[in-house]
Amino acid sequence: MTALIEARGVSKRFRQHKRFPGLLGAFKTLVTAEYTEVAAVSDVSFDIQAGEAVGYLGPNGAGKSTMIKMMTGILVPSAGSLTVLGRTPHEQRMANARQIGVVFGQRSQLWWDLPVIDSFALHQRIYDIPQARYAENLERFSALLDLTPFLDRAVRQLSLGQRMRAEIVMSLLHDPKILFLDEPTIGLDVVAKDAVRRFLAEINRERGVTIILTTHDLQDIETICPRLIMVDHSKLIFDGELGRLRAALGSSRRLTLEFATDPGPLPLATATLTSDEGLIKHYLLEREDVSLVHVLSEVGSTRDLKDVALHEPNIEEVIRTFYQGRNIAATATS
């Protein structure tokens, strides 16, 4: 089976009118036609199979939104080839549009002045959704995301969390094969974020809707996406499972040992001491093959050990280490 989305060496460069600083520069800007080229996406390749849920992660300006816009057909790649459901998105924009759903966290697709339910009804007409299917989807999704209390309210009167839930439901009404979400949880509170995450994970699992989402919030990825694509400075820097990223980074676990009486300085061969507060000592377990048992047997049973705590690194730490490591590597080579 061929992949649902195939990206081969996709690049996107933007031309920006060159501006000159200062008052004279302002006049110069008026008459010159100099451009600077900015690379938003450089030589990115990946395959996404049907039913996958992929998190597209990267810092601001790394080219996440640009990639989503190319996959939805509203931007044309400068180089490389991109196919979505076997089509070139920008050439068959209309046909592509019927089979995908898109949610922009920062741009509403609902009709501002209309009640939510009217926006949905318009959506039904635009996508020619058969009445029975429309009613079924609406009922199911509304129940899952608890939309019923505000279906009759005008969109401009909704809270951000309510609006976002409505946006997501609307994007799924026409049974899209792929759902693209550009920062769907931005600005939401903890409860709303959680509801959205659980809903997306369920849609992916039960309906097999392929999900591609960009986000800053790593929790989104941990809950929804088994697979992670990371970009930085327009380039792809990691593509694989989150667990693999953890393993690849050596995933330094942190160990805290608490003693009833101060054993004095206690350097260990199996773990590196990072800070010593007397009764409480912090260590870093840098090697994967070292287990807690090894450390404890080195500490020995003679000392007055009261408590042990081992912290698995969370995803934020993993990714921070990853980016920092890259930056250090970059400065070292340049």
Binding site: R93, A97, Y127
Partner: peptide, 11 residues
């Protein structure tokens, strides 16, 4: 750039 939203729909 709000027009992008319209380019996403079959309209």
């Amino acid at each position: 750039g709000d027009v992008a939203v319209w380019l996403l729909k079959p309209v």
